[in-house]
Amino acid sequence: MTQPHLADEVQPRTPTHHLTLRFSGTRRGARLARQLAVQQLTEWTGLPYDSDPARTVALVTAELASNAIRHGSVPGRDFRLTLLHLPQAFRIEVTDTRPERLPATPQPADATSGRGLLLVQAYADRWGCEPRDTYTKTVWAEVPLHAMGS
């Protein structure tokens, strides 16, 4: 798996589907983002809602949204979820309002924090972080479609 890095590619490969929505910086917002990501995966790919790939997308989305709320949130600000169905992957992007707080390299399982990013690293084919502008950063992960067979 790759280590987190500033984007070596500014634009992802051309998506066949694309969706962006804002959610409240709350646990409810994170839960809704996770549910939407799974719904879009199943709609765009035809995979069952209870399939392993759908569970993987749910886990990765939950971790990225949770981190945005816990570490990247400014009170009163939402986070943005972008989903992209790429030719070889399903890309999940979560944009928050703390560009100065970049995610740390995942810590070993016995660490007291950072374990969520270990899960992202384990399940995603690639992941990273991109400061988008003075006010936002995006943490993203790509779940490979070739491993998503029925």
Rank of each mutant, 00 (worst) to 15 (best):
Q3G: 03
H5S: 15
L6C: 02
A7N: 02
V10W: 04
V10I: 04
Q11I: 11
R13P: 06
R13L: 07
P15Y: 13
P15G: 10
T16A: 12
H17S: 10
H18W: 04
L19T: 01
L21V: 11
L21M: 06
S24N: 13
S24M: 09
S24C: 00
G25K: 00
T26I: 09
T26G: 09
R27P: 09
R28T: 15
R28Q: 15
R28N: 13
G29M: 12
A30P: 02
A30Q: 08
L32S: 12
L32H: 12
L32Y: 14
A33H: 09
L36F: 13
Q39T: 15
T45Y: 05
T45C: 12
T45L: 11
G46P: 07
P48H: 01
P53C: 05
T61I: 07
A62W: 09
A62K: 03
E63D: 11
S66D: 10
A68F: 02
I69N: 02
G72I: 00
G72F: 03
G72S: 00
S73W: 00
S73F: 00
V74M: 08
P75D: 14
R77Q: 13
D78L: 08
T82S: 15
L83M: 13
L84W: 00
L84R: 11
H85C: 12
P87M: 07
Q88M: 06
A89M: 02
F90V: 03
F90L: 06
F90H: 06
F90W: 15
F90Y: 15
R91N: 02
R91W: 04
I92C: 04
I92A: 06
V94G: 01
T95F: 01
T95G: 02
D96Q: 01
D96K: 04
R98Y: 02
P99E: 07
P99V: 09
E100V: 08
P103H: 03
P103T: 13
A104R: 11
A104Y: 05
A104Q: 12
T105P: 05
P108W: 00
A109W: 14
D110T: 06
A111D: 01
A111T: 05
T112H: 07
R115K: 08
R115P: 00
R115M: 06
G116Q: 12
L117Q: 01
L117F: 15
L117N: 10
L118Y: 00
L119A: 10
V120N: 11
Q121K: 14
Q121N: 04
Q121F: 03
A124L: 03
D125M: 10
G128L: 11
G128E: 07
G128F: 02
C129Q: 01
C129V: 15
E130Q: 15
E130C: 08
P131E: 01
T134G: 02
Y135I: 00
T136G: 01
W140Y: 05
A141F: 07
V143Y: 08
P144E: 05
M148L: 14
M148Q: 13
G149L: 08
S150R: 13
S150L: 12
